[in-house]
Amino acid sequence: MSTVSETTHDGAVAMSAPPSPDDGLAAAELAAKYGLAVSGARPGLAEYARQLWDRRHFIVAFSRAKLTAQYSQAKLGQVWQVATPLLNATVYFLIFGELMGQSKGMGIKTYIPFLITGIFVFTFTQSSAMSGVRAIAGNLGLVRALHFPRAALPISFALQQLQQLLFSMIVLFAFLIGFGHVPQLSWLLIVPILALQFVFNTGLAMILARLGSKTPDLAQLLPFVLRTWMYASGVMYSLVEALKKAKSPGWLIDVLSANPAAVFINLMRDSLITGHAAHKHIDLPPHVWALAVGWTLLIGVGGFVFFWKAEEQYGRG
């Protein structure tokens, strides 16, 4: 095998004819002389953000394509975008409202919107996390074939979930009005809430995408973590009431009701559900907007930087 080692080392600069002044140069020196850059090197953070902005149309097109592809084999096609959340909400209405008559002391007119809001808002974060963890690991073909800032993938998946949520919101509005909650000005607050939650979800998806690309096992583990998170965020009941009933220590109540999922869920409930009776079941921690913005900045910006740090590593399988 001695031939081999000779080839590999001489091959690089063995351009014996015609003789060139570059002959004696090592690869790195030659590269520097002609201004060649290392292929696949990680750009600076600002440059990375700029490249990402240049790919915004791809990000949007990719998320839309994923969304449409989801139901393209079904006969009803895109009707399922609305039908799926509608059926989801109907099941909860039948089980909790009709069958069990359970309303956690807030009356069925309040409880069903309370429950559906919680489920839809939490599902938004949950499915962003689930698709985030597979964003790189599940798209290695794409990562190994084309050049683009890899953050485009987790962002695109989070965007897909946002579009899915917007369909769910239509169903939610229908249920709210059906249960006698008339549209009011505070409904406009869902725009900033969703914007914050989307940035939060995107950051979360980017963190999980990096972890999932190194350790694919996370995709198996994550559903259990997310289910724990769901129960700790009061999706189906008022968290504070449940914890007080269980005589939990005060600091635990404070910590759990300040967790980002609970913050977004309760902000959304607070702005959508009307009636004073309902509001004593919606546990808004103090400085709730500051908390929401804080979580968003921390996870959104932190996730972006965390993801960027390993940019050149994605694609190694």
């Binding site: 696949g40 090197a41 084309l146 694609g315």
Partner: peptide, 23 residues
């Protein structure tokens, strides 16, 4: 530049592209 190298380096002029859009 799509697959990271274990060791060694690849220097290129501009952005090389792979004719592979399948993915």
């Amino acid at each position: 530049g799509l697959l990271p190298t274990e060791s060694g380096k690849v220097y290129t002029n501009g952005q090389p592209s792979l004719l592979g859009v399948n993915a």
